[in-house]
């Protein structure tokens, strides 16, 4: 983004690098900065439509105030506005899973979520998984212990996805390969099916599957889940 162009401001956060993205249309905004999201009903043809919105996003427990073009995806805002670059852009079409984050505890492709539509959600990225003392999430530790990556680009998405998988299993969600929907158990086939939305071009699956199974063993004491997926 060219300096001085009034594309966006983020209070409390210093905007960092901002390559041209959907969030950075390279045009002047058509509405004054600070306009709130439009809930007034249909547009008046005589008035230029308000195509940006001021809103808050709660990410990893921190509130961020934003004023952005409505086209910004959640992924672009995380990476280009808030310097949370753990979430990766792979395909930008919801097909690879590298951008996976948790919305209200449930995994989602952040490339397909408009940031403006994520208001009011509790957003958790890979940066928010470790404990306050820096202790890694069991899934993170299991990925380390099992060498469950090669280049690492897909890893944040894999880890966020796996965190949600453990919760989904704990809450009894069946998958396409579940034989008895009333007794959901995680095994190799279940991990492969449930993690199908995360592509690894290095082909580290052989270690990802054991890592996810190991993470479930590590968290078994907390079985029952935190209820996130049943909200």
């Amino acid at each position: 983004m060219a300096a001085g162009r009034s594309q966006a401001y983020v209070r409390g956060v210093t905007p960092t690098h901002s390559p041209a993205t959907a969030a950075d249309p390279g045009r002047s905004p058509t509405a004054p900065s600070g306009a709130s999201s439009d809930t007034s009903g249909r547009s008046d043809a005589a008035t230029a439509a308000v195509t940006r919105s001021a809103y808050r996003l709660r990410i990893n427990g921190t509130e961020h105030e934003l004023d952005l073009d409505n086209r910004a995806s959640l992924l672009d805002v995380l990476r280009d506005r808030l310097d949370l670059t753990g979430s990766k852009k792979g395909c930008d079409h919801g097909q690879c899973g590298a951008c996976t984050v948790l919305l209200d505890g449930r995994r989602a492709n952040s490339c397909l979520v408009l940031a403006v539509a994520a208001q009011g959600r509790e957003i958790t990225t890979v940066e928010g998984l470790a404990g306050a003392d820096g202790e890694l999430h069991p899934v993170q530790q299991a990925f380390l212990d099992h060498d469950a990556y090669q280049c690492g680009y897909c890893t944040p998405g894999q880890i966020c996805s796996a965190v949600a998988v453990l919760d989904e299993v704990a809450n009894g969600w069946p998958s396409a390969v579940t034989r008895d929907p009333d007794a959901v158990e995680l095994d190799r086939a279940e991990v492969r099916e449930r993690m199908a939305g995360n592509i690894c071009r290095c082909g580290a699956y052989a270690n990802i599957v054991p890592a996810v199974l190991e993470a479930q063993r590590l968290t078994a004491g907390a079985a029952g889940g935190d209820g996130a997926v049943t909200r």
């Binding site: 439509a49 308000v50 195509t51 409505n70």
Partner: peptide, 10 residues
């Protein structure tokens, strides 16, 4: 992507 207005229905 074309610019667009956004509103949330209650």
């Amino acid at each position: 992507m074309r610019e667009f207005a956004y509103g949330s229905a209650e």
